[in-house]
Design a protein around this nucleic acid. Sequence first.
DNA 1: CTGCTTTGTGTAGATTTTACACTTATAGAA
DNA 2: TTCTATAAGTGTAAAATCTACACAAAGCAG
Lengths: 253, 253
Amino acid sequence: MEPVTKQETRHTINNFVSVDCVIFGFDFTQLNVLLVDRVMVDELTGKEIFSDLTLAGNHIYEDEDLEEAAARILFDLTGLKDIYLEQFKTFGAPGRISRANDKLWLEASGRDPNDRIVTVGYYSLLATDKVTLEWKGRNVRWTPVSEVTELAFDHMEILNEALIALRQSLIREPIGFALLPSKFTLSQLQRVYEVILGVSLDKRNFRKKVSRMKYLVSLEEKQIGVAHKPARLYSFDRDMYESTRKELLDFAI
Amino acid sequence: MEPVTKQETRHTINNFVSVDCVIFGFDFTQLNVLLVDRVMVDELTGKEIFSDLTLAGNHIYEDEDLEEAAARILFDLTGLKDIYLEQFKTFGAPGRISRANDKLWLEASGRDPNDRIVTVGYYSLLATDKVTLEWKGRNVRWTPVSEVTELAFDHMEILNEALIALRQSLIREPIGFALLPSKFTLSQLQRVYEVILGVSLDKRNFRKKVSRMKYLVSLEEKQIGVAHKPARLYSFDRDMYESTRKELLDFAI
DNA sequence: CTGCTTTGTGTAGATTTTACACTTATAGAA
DNA sequence: TTCTATAAGTGTAAAATCTACACAAAGCAG
């Protein structure tokens, strides 16, 4: 935001800006993340040079806002629009692209691997159903978050930060409801919290807690076809949530 | 993070990256923000073309991490190091530099005003004492946050987002202690919360609340020389805080 | 010694948190 | 029809926290 003056010669002008999406997928069993296969092949011999995994990222187009770029990437991978998407942190350390594979990869696509790429991190959360599992000719796969140990670039760090931010959001905002069908049971809702936060919760206390939320509406309807006592169904009332959400006030330093 | 392929022609490569610092200053009366005078003068006539206010921002140097750039700006303005500094959001809308003054300003410093500048927002919090009030030959001033109504670029939006993030941090982390001398009274501590959050708190309930925090240590020492009952002094024990901080767990959707 | 100013303190009622175990409704198998 | 497996649904007591609210004590200045 500051004009360049003549004294300042240490400036960089080739800062490329990209967006990386940490797409979390919930499936009632575990929390997954969408990872993209990155395979580099020797053009002459056809032999594989290396193969690893990355988050889904892309540069931003000229006419796009950052969030639009993230939504585009999300759409390309999943075919879904209007999905919960949140910016959480921007990464721009000069050495964030320093590993050999990453440099090779950039060179192969005509970039100077010494340029800095500043990347804006977004995360999103959706149910792992009906997502396109192909992107730019590359394989895309759901991987349980707990099993991800190594990623290209600094994507492991980005994933870790995203997970922290996701959990904070889940605690403070009703983003878990988007993972459920429009009518759901309290056990399903509890599962959302348990899986994403990685904790186990007491059933009775959980119900006591959510029963205080006016935007959780109890339907006069039950599950059918289940081989046990059928659960009552509930739905999420967004309008009620919007109108009763209280501003943060009491502090808990 | 994604190599450019031939099909993708809509990409931008001239994305300049800058850092903007929202420097909050606390003075027991109000919350202030450091603003920089921006005056544009006609080179020939010497007449003022316009004058307004901006946040403190700068591009990032080649060898700097984003946070280092923010810390450098903070140091240049205040002469202070190791101050609380937090990244909160990145702004990159294509039209974020669209007002006439802003375009003139960029042109005057040899930039193409149609280039996009992606800026990473940081905020910091300090006591309004002993800060350098000059920066790059321009005037720098503390302005009460409540009186800021218009800023250059999209800096008003950036300020608003920073304020929200600051308040959240104050509520969740003990960042207020840095504004106080090493020995302080509970009334001073209460004032920190009241001024920054913009609320008034009940004295007894506040004391009950903070008395539960083990890292707030009560000293066997009192104020001297005050024309009223002298207050007991307290200090903040960072080690105790680090060792007893509980991970967020109970959720409050 | 009087007045001014700020400190410091307690209680009762309401709400929330925590830990904890048994009965009920249904589908499917015997 | 009965039995079995499975998940649903429910209450209580103790502890902790939250909320609203008013007056005496300590020091300095005059």
